[in-house]
Write a protein that binds this DNA or RNA. Structure first.
Lengths: 230, 230
DNA sequence: TGCTTTTGGTAACCGTGGCTACCGTTTTTA
DNA sequence: TAAAAACGGTAGCCACGGTTACCAAAAGCA
């Protein structure tokens, strides 16, 4: 039944430590719903009734939040095997805390939240593992948000840009790399305006700290960048 | 042994649904460490080795984060029965993601993280409950951070102030209430400078939207405030 | 009780960064 | 392959809010 998605699901953090045979049993237990979406189609809408823990099976989704002023903040970009709605799954109000939009054609699986904590009728042994995995996942999510808060708490734009670039530098281990976000998306992520971001990056280029062309970026003075990060 | 703290602990979300006799057994299992601190003393320091899940027994602690630029951001204020370090408890790196400072004289309990998920030798039945509680707690924490991100994502100071006041208004249900934070702390929380905050609040008072004197504040035009929140 | 510390309001100055507008380039779609 | 849409850099304008400095009131402490 879920044979098609086994490879992806085995990579999903929720099912870590559960072997294929058990996974099949657990999935039958959880009774998930698989749906496909086109580009820019809404998978979930902020404030609507919570429909279940999401797992991306194919394609990519973007988790966004619109504040009333009309600014769209990108919370995350999730690919195959990644999840969304982990936090809402165990909240009381039972509504989506964010909007999830298909970044391109994609397929997602929605798991009813109650089934995860609720004790299984057939008392399948992987349920405890599932809950423990869930705990780790939500903790990681919380830490990610913690990091996000740190980003937003940086007052100056230079600080934000420098911090972001240094994180990429550390992640890739190279001083020349591709930006994982378009200017628009980066501006959203750093919570600044797009033209101001361009201007500041250009200034940094003029000063010889970095060099870039479109998506390709090169860090020329790591130490200077570090001093600007805070 | 923990008789002195039973009243507080029974109110702690971690032990919800566990009756006093079981609580004693569970506590013995967890082997917690109780310590006292003076005002402004550090309970935990950012980056240092994780020492365990914290529970405030008496007094208050402030969870803060200093960014390298020297700005101190208040993450939370925790009183008796409240916890800190929930996220770090299940992260890999095993260091404190924030600094916790005693707001006044206080007593806290530290629970070794491993003991919570690790299966109990005496296989005491409340362990599953403990893990489930932990899941709910961490989810709530994540949602709280989510809300925090929303606050920080608000561009204008007016928007921040309005949002904060409306939240208090909703919480107390009254249009006149006491500010739960000093100006200093509020400025930190909203991530703005203290004089700018005072100035903006004075402007709002001049415009007749609000009225205030020190800690006491009155909302005069809720609808206008709402339109300013975003 | 007087002294010190903390807290909060106000004012002047000015830099960062938001906004709008425009244009060239790249990518997508028909 | 032409038309349309998305993307990214640049420029000018100016307001929001950071910074510093100072003072008054309140609270803590001797």
């Amino acid at each position: 039944m879920f044979k098609k998605w086994m490879t992806v699901l085995s990579k999903c953090a929720l099912f870590r430590g559960i072997n294929p045979e058990e996974l099949n049993i657990v999935l039958a237990c959880l009774n998930p719903k698989v749906s496909s979406y086109d580009k820019n189609e809404s998978v979930t809408v902020f404030g609507e009734k919570f429909s279940g823990l999401g797992v991306v099976l194919a394609g990519e989704v973007v988790v966004v939040k619109d504040n009333a002023a009309g600014n769209r903040v990108i919370m995350a970009v999730n690919g195959p095997g990644e999840m969304f709605g982990e936090m809402a799954a165990f909240s009381e109000d039972g509504v989506w805390p964010a909007t999830v939009v298909a970044r391109g054609a994609c397929t997602v699986m929605l798991l009813p939240a109650g089934k995860i904590v609720g004790s299984c009728e057939r008392s399948c042994g992987s349920h405890k593992m599932l809950i423990t995995n869930m705990l780790i996942i939500v903790s990681d999510k919380a830490l990610m948000l913690h990091r996000k808060v740190e980003y937003l708490a940086i007052r100056s734009m230079r600080g934000k840009i420098s911090t972001f670039l240094l994180e990429q530098y550390k992640r890739t281990g190279k001083d020349t790399f591709m930006m994982p976000l378009k200017r628009n998306e980066l501006a959203d992520f750093l919570n600044v305006s797009r033209p101001s971001l361009s201007r500041e990056m250009s200034r940094m280029r003029d000063e010889g700290v970095i060099d870039f062309h479109r998506d390709s970026i090169k860090i020329k003075q790591v130490d200077v960048l570090r001093s600007m990060a805070g």
